[in-house]
Design a protein around this nucleic acid. Structure first.
Lengths: 341, 341
DNA sequence: CTTGTTAGCATAAACGTTTATATATTATCT
DNA sequence: AGATAATATATAAACGTTTATGCTAACAAG
């Protein structure tokens, strides 16, 4: 690693002081035109680049955003893309740290980034995270923080997320409209808010339609196709088995689909199936899977915008909340009446 | 953003000099036990965290790795996961910048990270990138640099990539073994090395098997399912149409599959199909798609390890190259003889 | 009693900037 | 001519560290 050209080098070469060079480079007044030109010419020649570290130390800002996410699956990668785009535009660099759904790693990542390396945080918590001391620490230090996707309630920070309850409602109402009566729910980890909200929306809609809700029809499992497969088999082996499954993610829906097929049941005739996230894959499978779109890219962009606003304004923004409305895409897996929409 | 506790605060409170505090905190000699204990106790109490920026400026190292990638698709996200894991372990933080397959953004990202923010670079170039001045600049400044996946030839830097030629060979030999005779190639962007290597492997194998190679059976298109769909339709509308398609990515293979199905042709009976990357989705589609596994996670880990070695050794490593061997996974889309493997 | 050693601390320089303040030279005005 | 203003530059402090060097007092050895 070669030593970079510094302002000192230029000053020395031109027999000037560093302050004059600094001012010349930034077109400040109080510098003669000749000096300014000479400085700029030499800077160009030596390929001078201001040292960002020195600047950061001085100004106490790094122009870097720390993004902490549980993983890099389709949805989150898309959100990160949205964050990245807005951040880049605004001159910020993004530091993405994956917690890999591990509480320990989330804490480690937070600590690392907290060591004055980032101007603020954009966080989506891991599914293991039930204690929020590390997030509180960010908050206590008055470091800008925005939560997205998997937000935490009772936390006075800006939040951007999907209306997951509404997503659950959309999916469920659709299944009901298609004549399904015993709707099972394939949920994510038990303490995961997004999952529970989707489930809540589902249950709510069942009640509204006067359909009895059977607790046994809710199964929680990790975000993993294989677990979903096992869980679905379990559901379909009940003596009063469901006639539809609402999976709170497409990956879970796929696991369920494999199980359903393997048991010789027909989708959507015997069993209706709706997923969540609207991953492109849902449209490629046979049958194609109905799914709830969550506009991940838009959520990402909105999050970054909110963050930047927070960074630059000095208003209290802790009660700002953006809730994105989901949309159901109806496909073969639940469309047994042959409706088109 | 609250001011962090600094070494000065501690020094002032304890009527010591900053140097003594610094030494005390790091268990250096020349500090009495009482002083050391007092310093440590106060540091603990005030939640002192050393300022990384100051340290970075002083030591001229940031413990940060700049990763520049074209996008965050399944393969690259997996590679990044591998890089991340190794980097985290070694105490490094990763800065991921997506060029979004845009040459301009790749340059912008490189510039941003070059401003002394990272200790080195791990780069996979965009498909638009045909001129490598920005990469040369990294090299000229003697900043550690490792290329991975989409590497550049004639560049004296460590490289980690898949044996793409071999991948092309595996896929093609398999198709030939299955009795396919007119094998078309669905390639990526024309100047993309990984794509061309896979194609080269394919052509090589055709020749080895004395199968005439028809130039018209090679179509290049962007990494996009829709383009692949159009390209495949074109291929299948030729008067001497192919009886198999080797797609150099799974996404392209999926586009081709849709086209084939739509034209009423049967897979694998009428048309054989092999993809590349072995994305999980290949095993979920109907028919399931044969694909070449590229061990993305391993490539990511190997890349990060190589990078760290380069960072810490002072040997010349510019001729280091790791080539990962691919493996073909045979599935329904190409298995018309009913072989199992 | 002088000299040397050592323990324990402080001082100062360094990393690369910006910026408030000081200084020196020249120009302007009365 | 002398005072004042203006211009153009330098000096120094600051950001938060580490570290080489310097200093002082106590104590041991001769």
């Amino acid at each position: 690693m070669e030593r970079q050209t510094t302002i000192k080098d230029i000053a020395l070469a031109l027999r000037l002081s560093t302050s004059t060079v600094s001012r010349a480079l930034r077109d400040a007044p109080d510098v003669s035109i000749e000096t300014r030109n000479a400085v700029k010419a030499l800077a160009e020649e030596l390929d001078y680049q201001p040292n960002k570290l020195a600047l950061s130390l001085l100004k106490n800002q790094t122009n870097t955003i720390g993004v902490i996410i549980p993983n890099l699956d389709y949805v989150l990668a898309t959100m990160v893309k949205g964050i990245d785009e807005v951040a880049l535009e605004a001159g910020y660099t993004v530091m993405v740290c994956q917690s890999d759904e591990s509480f320990g790693r989330e804490i480690l990542n937070t600590k690392r980034l907290l060591d004055s390396l980032v101007d603020g945080f954009i966080v989506s918590v891991s599914s293991e995270t039930m204690v929020y001391e590390h997030i509180k620490k960010i908050q206590n230090k008055k470091i800008p923080l925005v939560l997205f996707d998997r937000v935490i309630n009772n936390f006075a920070v800006p939040k951007i997320s999907l209306d997951n309850v509404e997503g659950g409602r959309l999916a469920t109402q659709h299944l009901i409209d298609q004549g399904y009566k015993r709707i099972a729910i394939l949920g994510g980890p038990e303490n995961l808010g997004v999952s529970n909200d989707r489930i809540a929306g589902c249950i709510q809609t069942l009640k509204q339609n006067k359909i009895p809700f059977d607790k046994n029809l809710v199964i929680h499992c990790d975000f993993n196709q294989d677990y979903a497969y096992v869980a679905a088999k379990e559901l379909l082996s009940m003596n009063k088995k469901p006639d539809a499954i609402f999976a709170i993610s497409d990956r879970l829906a796929i696991g369920a689909m494999l199980a359903i097929k393997e048991m010789g049941l027909k989708i959507p005739k015997d069993i209706g199936l709706v997923g969540f996230n609207n991953e492109p894959i849902t449209n490629l499978l046979t049958p194609s899977i109905s799914s709830v779109e969550m506009y991940a890219f838009e959520i990402g962009k909105a999050t970054a915008k909110m963050f930047l606003e927070m960074l630059h304004s000095n208003e209290d923004m802790s009660d700002r909340t953006i809730i994105i409305k989901p949309k159901l895409f109806i496909r073969e897996s639940s469309n047994r009446l042959g409706l088109s929409k």
